[in-house]
């Protein structure tokens, strides 16, 4: 299996804080890998280091030669003074033909949006347009940074189904960061639990039962694990991790 990205001993310093220290990480062709971790654990920083937006303070990142990365950022605020249609947005920074733009929008599940203004899209449509843009170059690796933030639960579930479909169709590897453990873990080949360093990694089941993971996510993981096993009869006890997240999401969506 060919390595797409490999980091060895990767450390990143932002200001005076060391956000990542000694991270060994890799992703191979066609894999779906999810990074989980509490807020401030350096998940997004790892992704940003991979795209070259932050410089490592130690260690190295090696990329497969000619690697094409499609990046879906966490949140994108477009200033209301900037008029831009979906079609024009897809053509940045390199112009693409109408047909290619239409094909990418189709793959992302929003075929009819080309002439709409970016500012007029709903949260779910916006994320799909970002996905379409990431798919334009037929990437070997799709990077998703909390791509469903601000979507409600059905919306984000639909979004992840779309990702799975895209991977089936295009065969690209997917590296995603998410706090929605139950949704993303079920679709992942491997899970990496991050908290400044790699706490534990492996298949979703191995990670979910690892003591390091339980220490980070507490009792809420039982709910997540139950969902992962597609058991919908579990109870949402107060303080349950994903239940909390869900409430926050609804707020963000309003």
């Amino acid at each position: 299996m060919s390595r797409l990205i490999e980091t060895r001993g990767l450390s990143v310093q932002l200001g005076s804080t060391e956000v990542l220290s000694g991270v060994d990480f890799h992703i191979d062709r066609g894999e779906i890998v999810t990074i989980v971790g509490p807020n401030g654990s350096g998940k997004s920083t790892l992704l940003r280091a991979i795209i070259g937006a932050v410089k490592p303070s130690a260690g190295q990142i090696s990329r497969a030669p000619g690697l094409r990365i499609g990046y879906v950022p966490q949140r994108l605020h477009i200033d209301p003074t900037l008029p831009i249609t979906v079609a024009r947005f897809l053509g940045l920074p390199r112009r693409v033909s109408r047909a290619r733009a239409a094909a990418a929008l189709d793959k992302a599940g929003v075929p009819d949006l080309a002439e709409r203004q970016m500012a007029g899209l709903s949260g779910g449509q916006f994320q799909r347009v970002l996905l379409a843009r990431a798919l334009l170059d037929k990437p070997d690796l799709l990077l998703l940074d909390e791509a469903t933030q601000g979507l409600d639960q059905p919306g984000s579930a639909a979004f992840y189904r779309q990702i799975e479909e895209v991977r089936r169709e295009m065969g690209c590897a997917v590296l995603m960061v998410s706090h929605e453990l139950h949704v993303v873990m079920s679709a992942s080949d491997r899970v990496v639990c991050l908290n400044g360093h790699v706490c534990c990694h492996g298949t979703p089941e191995i990670v979910a039962s690892a003591p390091e993971y339980r220490a980070l996510f507490g009792t809420g993981t039982q709910g997540a694990l139950a969902l992962y096993r597609h058991d919908h009869n579990h109870t949402h006890d107060a303080g349950c991790g994903h239940d909390h997240t869900h409430a926050n999401e609804n707020e963000a969506a309003q």
């Binding site: 940003r48 937006a53 994108l76 940045l92 920074p93």
Partner: peptide
């Protein structure tokens, strides 16, 4: 202008 990280990734 749209997003610095989007620029880095391109």
């Amino acid at each position: 202008t749209l997003n610095p990280d989007l620029a880095y990734a391109s």
